[in-house]
Design a protein around this nucleic acid. Structure first.
Ligand SMILES: [Mn+2]
Ligand SMILES: [Mn+2]
Ligand SMILES: [Mn+2]
Ligand SMILES: [Mn+2]
Lengths: 220, 220
DNA sequence: AATAATTTTTAGATTAATCTAATTTTATTT
DNA sequence: AAATAAAATTAGATTAATCTAAAAATTATT
């Protein structure tokens, strides 16, 4: 198994994520959208990844990631998330600044480097956005989590992750005072538009939109 | 000025190094040898780098790096050496293990990342092989240095750098006990084969070959 | 079931980076 | 100054990754 190119690794990651960790079949168009490229380019890449047995590809029927592909994708994801931890914990980046840099760093090839980085960081289990970091064997466990939008009125929780990792969204959370680890209590829910009122850490009263409520994940 | 590709950055670095920091003209063949590629590929790349005004290229006459090219090359070198420091100081790599990984890391594009990394490392002025680290403006100063081979008998020095950064050579230095910062005194010189006897840190008597003596650089 | 709409693939180009083989230019030797 | 050797460039292919436009397959709608 020859080394994968950056492009191949990016496609594999996209297929993995879109397939919900390899469960579902993924459509050409959804990959094209996720990767901001054209469907024709995706078809081409799927053919090549299929030849390398990284995916199971049936023309017009969608694609499924293979075990081999899953293993590869999980190692790239592991690297991405470890580098994100490094950037935030060691280099003092904000959580909204790390994604693009990690997109580059995730492609550095050196198993020893990642092992040492993991040691250096103290074997973190989650990245700065609350996403789980797979171990060397691709194993990880997610914290049980629910979108704030689905919490009942007067329900308590702790913010454990964000669904959207877009920079604008994260900056908005910073501004209103939502962060990983914050304690939340839903004090009011508005049926009409899905917005809600919550109490953060027992003292900050916040009104949040449906979009925010759907993208903040709390323990359950 | 659009972003340079990895290949372009590697070529620029090679031209810079071979030209003795941009002084001399560089031949196509020397670049091909340095980069372990074919002369035809070099000609092609020189034409492209020339169009981007990173080098001044006169067919059949060799190439010279431009000011623009020098600036770019120095930033890649800066990144390479900062990452090497990181790998040795923070991730506990040995100085013979860092070059290949830094060859990859040097191409990560993010000025902020490098600034933060530099801060994190405490603004080191030299890399693990004693090579100077250019600052954001490409400025650096080299320690005055001489190959051990050129030191007179009974001459003292401190090891400040190595010329060769090949893994085998560095491991050999580890084995015999030569390291950056070691105090040296030349106790005997053999005309016949260029080998010499030295005293390290006033206590270790060592016999070293001409190859070693030429590649260990000491203060003068 | 036929038609229309959507999705996906293929055909054909383009760009970067590489190679081998042939040609051209420059340098060295008779 | 020719002839020869060496160095460098060009010509022509190849591979990866992308694109636009056309064709084919699948899905949805009358
Ligand atoms: Mn990436
Ligand atoms: Mn993340
Ligand atoms: Mn490199
Ligand atoms: Mn170095």
């Amino acid at each position: 198994m020859k080394k994968l190119s950056f492009a191949e690794e990016n496609y594999l990651k996209a297929v993995y994520h879109l397939s919900n960790a390899g469960e579902l079949d993924v459509s050409t168009n959804s990959i094209a959208e996720e990767m901001d490229t054209k469907a024709a380019s995706v078809s081409d890449m799927l053919r090549r990844l299929s030849e390398k047995e990284m995916v199971v590809y049936r023309k017009y029927q969608g694609v499924k990631i293979s075990e081999k592909g899953k293993t590869a994708a999980l190692q790239v994801i592991r690297k991405h998330r470890l580098w994100e931890v490094f950037l935030v914990e060691k280099l003092k980046f904000n959580w909204d600044q790390v994604h693009e840099i990690a997109e580059q760093l995730e492609h550095i090839k050196s198993p020893l480097l990642i092992q040492r980085l993991d040691d250096f960081l103290g074997h973190p289990k989650f990245d700065p956005h609350g996403d789980p970091i797979p171990d060397e064997n691709g194993l990880f466990k997610e914290k049980p989590q629910v979108p704030l939008a689905e919490v009942e009125i007067s329900g308590d929780g702790i913010v454990v992750a964000v669904k959207d990792t877009n920079s604008m969204f994260l900056q908005h959370l910073d501004r209103i005072g939502i962060y990983l680890g914050a304690k939340t209590k839903v004090t009011e829910k508005v049926e009409f538009d899905g917005s809600m009122e919550i109490l953060v850490d027992g003292k900050n009263k916040l009104f949040i939109s449906k979009e925010v409520a759907e993208n903040v994940l709390v323990t359950h």
